[in-house]
Design a protein around this nucleic acid. Structure first.
Lengths: 347, 347
DNA sequence: GAATTTACCGGTAACGTTTCCGGTAACGTT
DNA sequence: AACGTTACCGGAAACGTTACCGGTAAATTC
């Protein structure tokens, strides 16, 4: 019960071989006789040996820990992304430290520091809504920790960081197109915070689609929900005082759309008869609402999977460069994931 | 750029003191001159020293990592619990490894193994819906890793594990009471999986409240949603074929209630006019639905906070016992958290 | 048949802390 | 004046693994 945990030394002693041989056997390195390897593995199993990740990490300067930073932990979308990340990384022996920035640059930066302290092998991050520069990411790169970004990113970053994203312009464009095809005349757009890049992109997609169909895009019809939550109310207020009310509203994302539908219900405005509503995200929840929400689905799980994939590539490339004594020159990569229109009752 | 990271030794050398002194200064131990301490801290700050958690962990046999296992990562309730956990544990220097069992005992057990391998300092877990025994938890305790349970637990476990829970019987009771007071006559209950303990408890609370008000609780009115999701449909079907349809339905939890409302809408049954709906959880989402969902709120964040608190206590007690050379005798503790009725439009 | 690989293994020094055991000097105490 | 305390610090051994270098014997090459 109390007995000390078996170590690599115990195995070495009992098999009368050296610890280095045991170590090699255990991590399936080359330069090892298959027979000895089997013996080691068997004994290890028998005496219930567990490798100390701590010691191994210290010696090899790896932690087998990957840090994941998301804006909010209660948002299902990010939960699904994480499932994708795990699917890829867990079989490889990595574990995740999941952190959330609370949509706040400062905490986001703290998260990075924390992960650096933890000596994680890699960082995956989706930027907070008010992150406007990426000095904190630079810090991580200076520590030679590979970073990848997913979903929320900075457009004009000079940092060579791979990202897995969707074409947000296209999302806005397609959504608007759908609304137009459905015959709605005055289509409004509720954006996110004005300086949030992916929000701008979706908005541009919206504008472009409108213009292409010869619709006016008067500034009236574009209102921001600056904090992605409470401010939806004031956004809607602005739309409802217009002499010409919109007959359809496209929201920057699903959560806003949910909130929006709620507010319309309160005003006893019929959806979609009087006003149609549409979101962008593809949250499963949308199916349960009444009416169910038409939306543009982002492949959340794939996004996690691919981001993890890219991270692994980068980690490998870095290791290879180091082994060969070369300097690793990181490059930016963009991977776009396909989006999909999900037509439901709200339009 | 490439320069080696500063270590405790560098500080020692530059200050011409020993590493042990530096170590003491850094972790604010006693037996240290405040002046030297300040000097060390200043230099550390200046040269950007970061302690290696790995090395510290190896030497002190601590990892400063806490494992958290939840059934599903996309459920907001658990996300909120995690926020509570972090609030307590982060200031203490602990980080979280968050794992999800996917409502599956086997993966749950794997998670435990993984956490043991990682040498976490503690484990916090909410049991999966089909966990019926806790041998895997026993394993963790044998490794002398403190465990606490929150929300979903096993009733008759002989393991001395502290738990932070709500009075599920009372939740069922109060919910039913509310429905009765509101004047509903035939109240149905959609349970979770039949052998899930907290589901049974809520059901008993329901039954008890019914009996107390002289209501019949015919078996017809109690139907299970065995997988907490899809099966809600068949559950509702069973209720709708009754000659005497219920005029109110209490769901085991909010997600089921959401699904339920959706299905009622599809059948064009008015909520709450024809059938009232009520949940138990207190998900924020409930507010956004139409009609908004009446529910019994569990204090999710507090639950995380208190569970973390209990874990810390246990870790400290264990350390103390070890320091004094005594055997630590763990005890079960139950901490009940208050629940609260949130009346909304669905009743 | 000598020279060169190849396959496998051992010894030892890291890795960056903490912990334990002493030791010294200054200060009180009687 | 001798002794015990107190406050502070240093040395060295862990902690459990990996990395590196070198060595031996067998296998391969010419």
């Amino acid at each position: 019960m109390k007995s000390r945990k078996p170590t690599i030394k115990d195995i070495a002693r009992r098999l009368d071989i050296s610890v280095s041989t045991v170590s090699r056997a255990l991590r399936n390195a080359d330069d090892i006789n298959p027979v000895t390897r089997r013996k080691v593995l068997e004994l290890a199993e028998k005496i219930g040996y567990k490798k100390s990740v701590l010691a191994a990490g210290l010696a090899s300067k790896k932690s087998y820990l990957i840090g994941v930073i998301i804006p909010e932990i209660t948002v299902p979308f990010f939960g699904t992304v994480i499932m994708g990340i795990e699917e890829f990384l867990k079989p490889l022996g990595y574990d995740l430290i999941i952190l959330h920035s609370d949509e706040n640059v400062t905490t986001e930066s703290d998260c990075i520091d924390l992960l650096i302290d933890r000596q994680v092998d890699g960082i995956m991050i989706s930027l907070s809504m008010n992150t406007k520069e990426d000095d904190h990411l630079k810090k991580a790169m200076e520590e030679e920790i590979p970073v990848v970004i997913f979903d929320r990113y900075l457009p004009d970053s000079i940092l060579p960081i791979p990202r897995v994203i969707i074409d947000d312009f296209d999302a806005g464009y397609q959504a608007t197109n759908h609304l137009i095809n459905k015959g709605y005349k005055r289509i409004a757009f509720i954006t996110g915070p004005v300086d949030m890049f992916i929000s701008q992109q979706r908005q541009e997609g919206y504008v472009r689609a409108m213009e292409r169909h010869g619709r006016s895009t008067s500034a009236d019809l574009i209102v921001p929900a600056t904090d992605l939550r409470r401010s939806v109310g004031t956004a809607l207020d602005k739309l409802m005082v217009l002499k010409n009310r919109p007959d359809a509203i496209l929201a920057f994302n699903d959560p806003i759309a949910f909130k929006l539908m709620r507010l319309l219900h309160k005003r006893e405005i019929k959806i979609p008869k009087e006003v149609a509503v549409m979101g962008i995200s593809g949250d499963d929840m949308g199916e349960l609402f009444y009416p169910s929400l038409t939306t543009i689905a982002q492949p959340a799980k794939d996004m996690g999977y691919w981001a993890a994939n890219l991270l692994k590539d980068r980690m490998d490339a870095m290791k290879k460069a180091k082994d060969e004594g070369k300097v690793f020159i990181p490059m930016s990569i963009q991977k776009f994931l396909p989006i999909q229109l999900i037509q439901r009752e709200s339009t």
